[in-house]
């Protein structure tokens, strides 16, 4: 039995750092949204780079990275946005060394993945911090100590092609499918550019821009809300429901971000410009399958794969 590879001492947490895995599904009927990594694609890639299962927990850093000291030799990888440390590759950090991350150069979030994963006790089946629900701890503070799990068997490092990594880059139109109340709105939404407001967090991203006009002022009976739903309150300023979203809501929803683009939301920062592109359900499915295909291809080794 391998020895646990030590612990992580949080010297500086950065702007907002939390422990995240792929979330806590199964409690929506209690009003608990799944939470999980804001950019799950980057977390999965980071985990694969250090030989972890994709579901392992890592540290999610937001806008400004933290400083972390390791008590044992560990293999780490950073995935997501550039926080001034080598990205998309695994490397070893020796016991007693400090990994210091800076401010985000682009995007908003970066994952510090450690071989063995962050081994905080799971709450309701997940290690994900749900800040709004107060589940799985809180934002990391200086002085926090995080245990590292026992790594599984070593596996060959995956190779991630530029095509997949490029898909994590922010700056392109976010693709959506029509929302359940899309017919309640006047045209114009897809021609408009919005700015991410400073009220953007893991719960939701408020947008500022031209008023999204309701065709009629009729209320909506509170109904279930999905991750990535774009709801429009009477003031016409859309809100994108994010990983710690409310499970139900009473504002009409004009559109919903597709599964293949949800990770892009995690890389949006205040004052970023956002546009939306409407796609069909079939197209959304194709895009997701294509994304998963590239992840699997990378995971299983591109050298072995033969494709034209």
């Amino acid at each position: 039995m391998a020895r646990p590879p030590g612990r992580i001492h949080v010297l500086q947490p950065g702007f907002q750092s939390t422990v995240q895995d792929l979330g806590r599904p199964g409690y929506g009927h209690l009003g608990i949204s799944a939470s999980g990594a804001a950019d799950p694609l980057s977390l999965r890639i980071g985990n694969l780079l250090v030989g972890n299962p994709e579901t392992a927990a890592a540290i999610e850093m937001t806008l400004t990275g933290g400083s972390f000291e390791f008590t044992g030799d560990v293999v780490v990888a950073l995935a997501g946005s550039d926080f001034g440390v080598p990205l998309w590759e695994s490397f070893e950090v020796k016991a007693g060394n400090v990994l210091a991350c800076g401010p985000a150069r682009t995007g908003a979030r970066c994952y510090l993945c450690v071989r063995g994963g962050i081994d905080v006790p799971p709450v309701l089946g997940s290690r994900s911090t749900h800040l709004m629900a107060g589940l799985g701890g809180e934002a990391l503070k200086a002085g926090a100590i995080l245990p590292i799990g026992i790594p599984g068997a070593a596996c060959p490092p995956p190779h991630f092609g530029p095509r997949l990594l490029h898909s994590t880059a922010p700056g392109r139109a976010i693709r959506v499918t029509a929302g359940p109340q899309s017919e309640r709105f006047l045209p114009g939404f897809y021609q408009s550019a919005f700015l991410v407001s400073r009220h953007a967090n893991r719960m939701g991203l408020r947008l500022e821009g031209p008023c999204v006009e309701h065709r009629e002022r009729c209320g909506l009976l509170t109904e279930g809300a999905a991750l990535g739903a774009i709801q429009v309150p009477p003031d016409g300023q859309p809100i994108i429901l994010f990983v710690e979203h409310q499970t139900t809501g009473g504002y009409p929803k004009i559109a919903n971000v597709i599964a293949a683009d949800l990770h892009l939301l995690g890389q949006l920062r205040p004052r970023d410009e956002v546009r939306f592109e409407l796609v069909t359900m079939e197209r959304a499915r194709t895009l997701l399958l294509r994304q998963e295909y590239y992840v699997c291809l990378s995971k299983n080794g591109t050298r072995k794969a033969h494709f034209s």
Binding site: P25, G26, Y27, G28, H29, S33, A34, L221, T222, E223, G224, A225, A226, L227, T247, T248, A259, R285, L288, L289, E292
Partner: peptide, 18 residues
């Protein structure tokens, strides 16, 4: 089936599209 979000007169069923 990942999550079930009940409301007054509707239920939103969230699923794994894969």
């Amino acid at each position: 089936i990942l999550n079930v979000h009940p409301a007054y007169a509707s239920v939103l069923v969230v699923f794994d599209p894969l």
